[in-house]
């Protein structure tokens, strides 16, 4: 084992939650399929064929644990994630671009979505000297980004594993929804360290001393 880069880039909480939800739905749909196959086999009287489905990988216990606990934490009602959306966050990062904020500050604004001045105080150092009047603009930009209703990423994924008996039209509609929400552009909101804000991390580390 070799660590090539311990901190290649930052991830926002929203990205992590969408990734974990995708994994979770994947797991649930697979579990459902397994149950269905077992039922079918029992019904057909096929026994003793033995062995597990060759196309299925077992999900390890440690992954399930951390997955479920992290989803619980990230989607708790004190987190702003419930009101966030992919489009909202994209718009927010665009709105924040003109202000002289560091990468780390922008990431925290996305993660915590501060809507009160005191919350922004904690995130941005020397807020008054650096931004002065612009503070209200940032707060209203955050508020605007939160208004979008929450469409949980990849939620309809598991619904697609309906029995084939379901009406043809219905299946189509669900599939459409599923794909629409499943499209997940990882590069959109990643806080890549190699960009113009490079060196921010170094500044942060200096604070330690």
């Amino acid at each position: 084992m070799e660590v090539l880069n311990p901190r290649a880039s930052f991830l926002s909480n929203y990205e992590v939650l969408s990734l974990l939800r995708e994994l979770d739905n994947d797991y649930l749909s697979r579990a459902k399929t397994a149950v269905r196959i077992k039922k079918e086999e029992d019904g057909a009287g096929v026994t003793g064929k033995g062995g597990s489905d060759p196309a299925a990988v077992d999900i390890s216990e440690n992954l399930r644990t951390v997955e479920v606990e992290a989803i619980q934490y990230l989607s708790a009602d004190y987190q702003p994630i419930a009101q966030q959306s992919e489009a909202g966050i994209k718009q927010l990062t665009r709105d924040l671009a003109p202000y002289s904020l560091t990468k780390a500050e922008k990431l925290q604004i996305v993660n915590l979505a501060p809507t009160e001045p005191v919350e922004l105080y904690v995130v941005v150092e020397e807020l008054e000297d650096r931004l002065g009047e612009q503070m209200d603009d940032i707060l209203s930009a955050v508020r605007r980004s939160l208004n979008a209703p929450y469409a949980s990423p990849g939620l309809s994924y598991s619904e697609r594993s309906h029995p084939p008996a379901a009406g043809e039209a219905e299946v189509y509609r669900e599939e459409e929804q599923g794909w629409g929400e499943e499209v997940y552009d990882a590069n959109e909101v990643i806080f890549d360290d190699t960009g113009e804000g490079a060196g921010v991390e170094g500044d942060l580390d200096m604070d330690d001393e």
Binding site: M1, V3, N5, A8, S9, F10, L11, V16, P54
Partner: peptide, 21 residues
């Protein structure tokens, strides 16, 4: 609070899992 780390490792796949992608 979350970051991406790039890691290199050698991983063994058991014959039982050869059927999987």
């Amino acid at each position: 609070m979350f970051v991406l780390s790039i890691i290199k490792d050698t991983i063994a796949i058991l014959p039982a899992n050869f059927g999987v992608l």
